[in-house]
């Protein structure tokens, strides 16, 4: 079934040896009943298992309940994409319109513009953001003093914990038309910077913001992979006369390869999720032509028109395409001998 191995491709955990759960004073339950095996049925009866495990079940209740209410229920709520929903009549009373909402969506040029912007941003992220944490991790890994490393890691991780409002505000204060650099330029008789409002600079600005915020945090997974590389390989390569660049090419990068491939594939499955807040916050400054992504489109679609079904249908299309992409990405991961986000049954 779908056990998830989220973000690395390290060896999967060895299936734990069958453990026996003590039966609270009763002799331990003989053969361990892990899923799928016929021994499930030969285990103790349902009432006996209920009596044994009711506390565990009770413990999962709050979390499962929250997910049921706030994840699964609204997922069902997507049926309003097939309606002309209005809040007074509710889901049950609103008229059904079949695929009319889809037709309207697919003929809306603003939707395709949002799709285009989302894909452009994802592509730019992939080319310009993705390699940076790898390079930064290799650089950090070469710092030998533990204290220096800790200080540097503390600094580069930090912006990950800032909100997008904060990051955008900081960028404005430094690079904006009324920001620090513009202020210096103006005092020296030059025109202020305009990149924070220039649609042509939009991709550059948002990518810089992503790099500033998350490139450092992205190194964590690569640093762990680097730490797992067998140090003896480096030593024997050095003894054989390989210089530092050849060692990086032949040992370090192959050591990172599985993680890189896995993250690339995951990124592929996540291509429609470029984020909401960063674009929402800068939509007015740069204009919706360049900054409208799918999520902001869904939001404004509903907010401006008050048409919930129009927003829901865009969300549903995005969700379904996203799901297909994730499943495809996983298939690809399995094909390449990686584990993907879940293991095969």
């Amino acid at each position: 079934m779908t056990e998830r191995t989220a973000t690395t491709s390290k060896t999967p955990p060895p299936s734990p040896a069958p453990r026996r759960r003590g039966g609270r004073g009763r002799p331990p339950v003989v053969p361990d009943h892990r899923g799928g095996r016929p021994s499930v049925r030969s285990g103790p009866s349902l009432p006996a298992r209920l009596r044994r495990d009711w506390q565990l079940l009770l413990m999962t209740l709050p979390a499962i309940g929250l997910l049921a209410v706030f994840h699964y229920t609204p997922t069902l709520g997507n049926i309003i994409a097939f309606q002309e929903y209005n809040p007074w009549d509710g889901v049950l009373g609103s008229p059904w319109v079949g695929l009319a909402q889809f037709e309207r969506l697919f003929t809306d040029p603003r939707f395709w513009s949002a799709v285009g912007n989302t894909l452009t941003i994802a592509a730019v992220q992939l080319v310009f953001f993705f390699p940076i944490p790898i390079a930064l991790a290799i650089l950090l890994d070469s710092v030998l003093s533990p204290r220096m490393r800790l200080v540097l890691q503390s600094i580069v991780y930090m912006p990950h914990f800032f909100s997008w409002v904060l990051v955008v505000t900081l960028f404005q204060q430094i690079l904006g038309g009324a920001g620090l650099f513009s202020q210096m330029l103006r005092q020296n008789g030059h025109a202020p910077l305009e990149i924070m409002t220039d649609p042509d600079a939009f991709l550059f600005v948002v990518t810089s913001q992503m790099i500033w915020k998350d490139a450092g945090w992205g190194t964590i997974i690569f640093l762990a992979a680097l730490a797992a590389v067998n140090q003896n390989l480096y030593e024997s390569a050095a003894v054989d006369g390989a210089g530092r660049w050849r060692r990086m090419w032949h040992i370090t990068l192959p050591g990172l390869r599985p993680v890189i491939i896995l993250l690339l594939i995951l990124k592929l499955g996540d291509i429609l999720n470029v984020g909401f807040e960063q674009f929402y916050l800068q939509r007015d400054a740069f204009g919706s032509n360049v900054s409208e992504v799918l999520d902001t489109f869904i939001y404004h679609q509903t907010l401006v028109t008050g048409n919930f079904s129009a927003g829901a249908v865009a969300g549903l299309v995005k969700g379904v395409v996203g799901l297909i992409l994730i499943l495809l990405a996983n298939k690809l991961a399995h094909k390449m001998g990686e584990h993907g986000i879940y293991r095969r049954a």
Binding site: P74, N78, I80, D295, F308, L323
Partner: peptide
């Protein structure tokens, strides 16, 4: 694997 979607969640 999937998010419930902004609008249905808002309505809920």
């Amino acid at each position: 694997l999937f998010a419930p979607g902004m609008i249905p969640l808002y309505l809920l």
